[in-house]
């Protein structure tokens, strides 16, 4: 596997590793109730965010199963940090990955997550050779559900009250996409010109 080149550039965003100085920018959205509502590990105060960034700063590649790659979404025009995406290599034997994301609610609905996740999923399948990617989300998170459908994920699981989440019965959805579903023709397009027979 060739080495991973960061940052990843998309039409409107730079996806780059987190830096120490990102605490204020991340706190601005991460501590909002609308974001906290669907997050597994609460970050209510700046100290929580600083601790989270200390962890995320080191998540810059996938060398071993269990590791996570986490990238900040930075808007090219004004260099504003508007969200985050991550890819966890959850299982090496079966090449499984899990994607997570969060965005500043003020910046949602503008296609930024679609753009960032498309780039991250391309990376997962093309660079890291993941076979299947799954995304978990709360059943009440309509924005996430729409986003998954837009990206072409299948709804694989709809758990009702299978665990407690933030003190209440949960409703959890699992979405998934297989490599061949994501880009059926990728293997053909990948061949460099000089390797073709004719």
């Amino acid at each position: 596997m060739s080495s991973l080149r960061l940052p990843v550039e998309t039409a409107h965003l730079l996806l780059r590793p987190f830096e120490r100085g990102d605490v204020d920018a991340v706190s601005r959205y991460h501590t909002l109730p609308a974001v906290q509502r669907y997050i597994e590990r609460p970050t209510r105060y700046d100290e929580d965010v600083a601790a989270a960034i200390a962890v995320m700063r080191k998540q810059v590649g996938l060398q071993r199963p269990g590791e996570t790659l986490t990238l900040a979404m930075v808007r090219k025009g004004d260099h504003r940090l508007i969200g985050q995406v991550s890819l966890k290599w959850s299982d090496a034997t079966a090449s499984q990955g899990e994607v997570r994301f969060a965005i500043d609610p003020a910046q949602s609905g503008k296609g930024y997550l679609t753009e960032a996740l498309t780039a991250l999923i391309d990376l997962a399948f093309d660079h890291f050779r993941i076979h299947r990617i799954m995304v978990r989300c709360d059943g009440r998170s309509h924005h996430s559900v729409k986003l998954m459908q837009k990206l072409g994920f299948r709804l694989e699981a709809h758990y009702r009250e299978h665990a407690l989440f933030q003190g209440e019965w949960d409703e959890e959805l699992h979405f998934a996409v297989l490599d061949r579903e994501w880009r059926p023709s990728a293997k053909v397009l990948e061949l460099p010109l000089r390797d073709r027979v004719a």
């Binding site: 034997t93 299947r132 299948r154 694989e156 699981a157 998934a176 297989l178």
Partner: peptide, 10 residues
Amino acid sequence: REAHFRQHAL
């Protein structure tokens, strides 16, 4: 039926 997993493990 709550889940239908495809190729999520060997």
